[in-house]
Structure formats: C-alpha cells, structure tokens
C-alpha cells in the first residue's frame, strides 16, 4: 500500500492542516479514488472557505478556491462549460449545510453531474470552534458553553438524509467516516464513477476529526468519532444507482479497516 497517493502534490507536503485533522484522511481517500480511476489530469477541484481551503495546493489537479458556500455553483459552471471535466466540490459542514445549503439543495434538484464532498467535524473549526448545524446534542463549543440544547438551538442536521429524501433518479448519496478510510475511498470512487457515467449528482459526507477544537487527545478523538458521532450519523450508502451485490459488499466490509 502506498502511503501517499500519486495524485497528491508531494512538493506541498507536509500539508497545512493541524496534527490529527481528518481532512488529511478524507483527501487521502479521495486521492486513492482518483488514482484508481486515473482522472487527476482532468479534474477540477473546488475548495470552500474554512479549513477545507487549506487543500488549495493539495492535488496535482486544477484547483479553485471560492466564496463561502459557493463551491457547488462554481464547479457546476466549470462542468457545464466543459462536460468532459470531472468536477469535485470540497467543503466543510459550515459551507455545505449552513451558508451553502441552498446550493446543495438546488444542485441535487437539478441533478448536476458533480461530486460534492462535505467534511463533517461538528464545528466551525477555522474560526475557533463555534457551534455548527451538525454540532451534537450536549456538545460543548465556543458558542454553546453549556452544551447544545435542542430546545433553543435545534437538533443536529443529518445532511445526506436530507438530500436523500428528494434525490432524483441516478443520484448517489452516502456517508463515510475517516475511521474507515478504505470504505470512504470506495464511496468516493462510486461517486466519481456515477459522474463519469453521466448518471447524476453524487453527495458524500465524511465524518471527520478536529482534535484542536474538540480539545481531545488521540484516544478521545477516536472515541468521539467512532462512538458519539457514528451513533447519531450512521455510516453507509443512502441512495445508490449501482446494482447491489450484497455478498461482495459483506466481503468488502470484512477486509476494510
């Protein structure tokens, strides 16, 4: 197994993310998927504002950094102008579910042929760890010092479930986690395949970590991700246009870490 995917740009490593940040793992999974499909030379990679913008020099691919939450329409524009390109919109939960949620909903409604990756770490990380739409019930953040109270602040948003509820035919919606990098890479690969086969929109959420703003050590970081987050945000495919081979899937899950 290669530690660094070929599509990563080696000159810019070490990358700019904090120690223990899940972005590195999501981008590793994306790099693995891009390597398998050999599409790095015709990919347009769009990054949002927030921690995700630190991936602006991450890949050997054309990259654009856009306004807050506007990655989706920018990538759709590129894809409509040059349909042979592979469009990837990469953003955090703030960009995807708060500021840019209208774009997510309208892009899904129009079934645009792009891959949207939303990295969910339950907070706004770059601005210092404020409460996000995905902050869990009772979770303490900079702006919810007594823990998120659903009575005043509402319940955490399950993004892929929201998208899946009105996903048109041909759409692919899934949720992966950075504690299972190979499975996440498989979901991203299917999302890209869905786009290459011109079927429809692909939305993949990746549960991620933020030790800096969660104020956790390595042990508690994994525990929070694998227990509390995965309990509320179940991992798996929600909508898939691919024919299901349940036996193969079970075998895959056995071998995935």
């Amino acid at each position: 197994m290669k530690s660094m995917p070929d599509s990563w740009r080696r000159e810019t490593k070490p990358h700019k993310f904090c120690p223990g940040c899940g972005h590195g793992l999501v981008l590793k999974a994306l790099g693995m998927a891009m390597d398998r499909l050999k599409i790095a030379d015709r990919t347009v990679f769009g990054v949002d504002i927030g921690c995700s913008l630190l991936a602006w020099d991450f890949f050997n691919a054309d990259t654009i950094q856009t306004h807050h939450g506007r990655t989706v329409p920018v990538i759709i524009g590129a894809k409509r102008a040059r349909p042979n390109l592979v469009g990837i919109a990469y953003m955090g939960d703030g960009g995807g579910y708060a500021i840019g949620s209208q774009h997510l909903i309208n892009a899904t409604m129009r079934n645009d042929r792009i891959l949207i990756i939303i990295v969910n770490n339950t907070i706004y990380a770059m601005t210092g760890g404020q409460m996000a739409p995905t902050t869990l019930k009772g979770q303490k953040t900079e702006t919810s010092s007594r823990g998120r109270d659903p009575k005043y602040e509402g319940f955490p948003l399950r993004g892929p479930e929201m998208v899946a509820s009105f996903a048109p035919e041909g759409a692919y919606v899934a949720r992966g986690s950075v504690s299972h990098v190979q499975r996440l890479a498989r979901y991203l690969e299917r999302g890209l395949e869905n786009q290459l086969q011109d079927r429809g929109i692909s939305v993949v959420e990746a549960l991620s970590t933020c030790p800096t703003n969660w104020r956790t050590n390595a042990e508690d970081t994994w525990k929070f991700l694998e227990k509390e987050m995965t309990d509320y945000y179940p991992v798996g495919e929600l909508v898939s246009p691919f024919k299901r081979d349940t036996q193969k899937e079970a075998a895959d899950l056995e071998t995935c870490h």
Partner: peptide, 15 residues
C-alpha cells in the same frame, strides 16, 4: 498489517 499507514493523515508512515 499497515493500519498505521492508512490512518496517518500526513502520510508520514510507510510499511
């Protein structure tokens, strides 16, 4: 087993 290679966010480990 190379699980460490897979979970390293910085690709610093190789086996």
């Amino acid at each position: 087993c190379s699980i460490c290679v897979l979970v390293c966010p910085d690709a610093a480990i190789d086996v």
